[in-house]
Amino acid sequence: CHSECLGNCSQPDDPTKCVACRNFYLDGRCVETCPPPYYHFQDWRCVNFSFCQDLHHKCKNSRRQGCHQYVIHNNKCIPECPSGYTMNSSNLLCTPCLGPCPKVCHLLEGEKTIDSVTSAQELRGCTVINGSLIINIRGGNNLAAELEANLGLIEEISGYLKIRRSYALVSLSFFRKLRLIRGETLEIGNYSFYALDNQNLRQLWDWSKHNLTITQGKLFFHYNPKLCLSEIHKMEEVSGTKGRQERNDIALKTNGDQASCENELLKFSYIRTSFDKILLRWEPYWPPDFRDLLGFMLFYKEAPYQNVTEFDGQDACGSNSWTVVDIDPPLRSNDPKSQNHPGWLMRGLKPWTQYAIFVKTLVTFSDERRTYGAKSDIIYVQTDATNPSVPLDPISVSNSSSQIILKWKPPSDPNGNITHYLVFWERQAEDSELFELDYCLKGLKLPSRTWSPPFESEDSQKHNQSEYEDSAGECCSCPKTDSQILKELEESSFRKTFEDYLHNVVFVPRKT
């Protein structure tokens, strides 16, 4: 048989008469490798580009789960590009990614509803959504962080984005990388972005840091009482949809009607710091009717980097990364020049730590249904340095008659930039024990000054392991946590139920 035959053949030295091919099969003959313009397919066939392209389009058009959109890589027609490569849609070739590779997620039936953290986790790592997304989240724990972890990498949506009755959302900033909504599939009414009845939605994105392009379709905003109209108009300008909307697409009466839409800028007039305090004062603000001013709200939190936005980490279910302080308005003076500047002394802060701070007014709604208010920009203030805590785990070892090696770990709280350490030492008198000992005694162990690591005695271990207080009263049991108490109650309830079950099964009433 021919060298490319495997198993047997019907005619000697003829690659077209093989029972099976050793390498690849091409047009009725066995070959060692697939010549151009053919590609290896499933490690035994040679196919042309049209064959591989037909497989790709067949799966793409069917949208069946589990099928493969075949691509070409290293002269092979394979189910998908290997790690580190992405497909070129024009020629199906796998090309190296520039940075992290995109991950295209194809949605069944063309859309997916995100109504819980669990459903959001199914899209973790996706960068391109081939379909439409509907966000409908009523509640949950730590929602802002969970949504950002699972949806934060999405850069492109081919269909539309719909935010509907998501009472738990305060902001859409968890879509931190969303840059493009194509609108290839539109919501009824030709809408590519749809926001309806979101009672706590206050911000779409921080438009000073976020760009969003909507290729096709219109915007729809109705019944978002805490979303200011200025935020919607800003989205029109940034996304390129200005002029597409009709009169009733953006409701003037049901958007922002319960919001404090600040239209003035508060400026800080005085800032002073110490290692654990920050004193702030800002310019006074009074609405047209000074009785509408209820006070100020001061927001602050630790910020290692200057990239904080107002609604980071917030949701309507209680999660809030900001510390909020309510401040009463100052006494009002008739003389504008003698107006008191409101302020606040922030206490209990960490030394040498940068804080993000902003302040906003708290006002009631005027009778004319106009909203007044003022808010400052987010500023960054760093507390002063102070003395560091003591170095940890000092170790001293003498390696000769004239040297001592000293080692330690950095302090747990540096409280500033540590530039150097101060080492103090003092000579001590020799131990009298060394002169009084009889060095001729056998088995004498000389006193040693070398360091030995501390260890816990058996008594201390027994005390720590004991669940009861000892007789001397030195140790006591740790208080039980809520989960331990709940577990004990469940076990007790189970024992009672099981005992009742045994009584009912074992003891049967005697027939009379």
Rank of each mutant, 00 (worst) to 15 (best):
E146P: 15
N198G: 06
I157R: 00
I181Y: 00
L212P: 02
S230P: 12
G256P: 03
W344V: 08
L219V: 12
I278T: 03
G373T: 14
Q258V: 14
D393F: 15
T323K: 13
G131H: 02
P391N: 01
F193Q: 00
F290K: 03
Q403F: 08
L201Q: 01
C261N: 01
V308A: 15
D292H: 10
P388Y: 02
R370M: 06
L252C: 13
Y191F: 07
E264F: 07
Q314F: 09
R124Y: 01
Y160M: 07
T127M: 15
F365V: 07
C105L: 01
R272V: 02
W322C: 00
V359P: 03
S239M: 14
Y380V: 12
A145T: 11
W352T: 06
D312H: 09
G217E: 00
P351K: 04
D393E: 13
F299C: 02
E236V: 06
P284C: 00
D335K: 09
Y300E: 01
A356E: 01
L147Y: 04
I154S: 01
A316V: 02
L153W: 14
C261L: 02
V363N: 11
E302R: 06
A259Q: 14
W207D: 08
N320M: 12
A120P: 02
E246P: 14
V325C: 09
R369C: 07
H222P: 00
C261G: 02
Q245W: 15
D292N: 03
G256S: 06
R247W: 13
E184I: 08
Y191S: 14
L229I: 14
W344K: 10
E264A: 09
D315P: 15
E231C: 09
S166C: 13
L266N: 01
Q121C: 07
S338M: 09
F175I: 13
N141P: 08
E368M: 07
G373E: 02
F290P: 13
H106P: 09
F221R: 00
L151V: 05
A385R: 08
G131F: 02
V381I: 14
T383Y: 00
R179L: 10
S400T: 07
K209P: 08
K360P: 00
P410A: 15
K162W: 11
N200L: 09
Q203K: 09
K409I: 15
D197I: 02
T273A: 15
P410L: 08
L107D: 05
S230T: 03
Q199C: 05
E262V: 08
T241Y: 12
L180A: 09
A168L: 11
C105Q: 00
V359M: 04
N130W: 03
A259S: 10
K209A: 10
T113K: 15
E246L: 04
T309P: 04
I137N: 15
R370D: 13
Q339V: 11
C105E: 00
C317G: 02
L280I: 06
R202I: 00
L345A: 03
A374G: 11
E156F: 11
I214D: 01
R347I: 08
R244E: 03
F175H: 01
K337S: 09
K360T: 03
T323W: 15
R347G: 14
M235A: 07
S166P: 02
P287N: 02
D328S: 03
S132Y: 01
F221L: 13
D384H: 14
Q339I: 08
S158W: 15
L265V: 13
R347M: 08
E283V: 08
Q306P: 03
L293C: 11
S396Y: 02
K407V: 13
L265M: 12
K337N: 15
L362G: 12
G348H: 10
I232C: 11
D289E: 03
L186N: 02
R247Y: 04
P304G: 03
E302M: 07
C126F: 01
L212T: 08
T254S: 07
P304R: 14
E122I: 04
N320K: 11
D249F: 05
G318V: 05
I214L: 07
L161N: 00
N142L: 08
P287R: 11
D249G: 08
E109I: 03
A374P: 13
Q203L: 14
W286Y: 06
D384S: 04
V363R: 07
N307G: 10
L204M: 06
E310S: 03
E148S: 05
N399K: 12
N150Y: 05
I163M: 09
S400K: 12
A385S: 11
L265C: 11
E111V: 05
D206E: 06
I181N: 00
E122Y: 07
S173T: 05
E368F: 13
A145G: 01
L212Q: 03
G373P: 04
E156D: 02
I114R: 00
Y380S: 02
S132L: 00
T353A: 06
D377L: 03
L298E: 00
A149C: 08
C317E: 03
R202F: 05
S400Y: 14
D377G: 14
Q199M: 10
N224M: 06
N198T: 03
A120I: 12
N224V: 01
T364L: 02
N224R: 00
A195C: 14
E246D: 14
Q306E: 12
E148V: 09
A168K: 00
L172V: 08
R281M: 12
L219G: 03
G256R: 05
A120H: 08
M235V: 05
L133D: 00
L147M: 14
N248Q: 04
F296S: 13
R244S: 03
L280S: 02
D312L: 05
A303N: 06
Y305L: 07
L180M: 11
A303I: 03
S269R: 15
K177P: 01
F311Q: 12
E155S: 14
T241W: 09
R347A: 03
V359L: 06
L180V: 11
V381R: 06
S260W: 05
S321P: 07
Y285F: 13
E262N: 05
S208M: 03
A251S: 06
E236I: 07
E187P: 05
I114C: 04
E246S: 06
E122T: 05
L161H: 00
Q258W: 09
Q403H: 15
E109R: 15
Q203D: 04
T241H: 08
E237V: 02
T386Y: 04
I214A: 06
I214S: 06
A149I: 15
E146G: 12
F358D: 01
L227T: 03
L133W: 00
C261Y: 01
R369S: 07
Q354H: 04
P391Y: 01
D367N: 04
A356K: 01
L294M: 13
Q339F: 15
M346R: 02
E237D: 14
N141E: 14
G217D: 04
G373S: 07
R165A: 04
L186Y: 07
P330G: 03
I395H: 12
K407G: 07
E237P: 02
L349H: 00
W344S: 07
S274N: 00
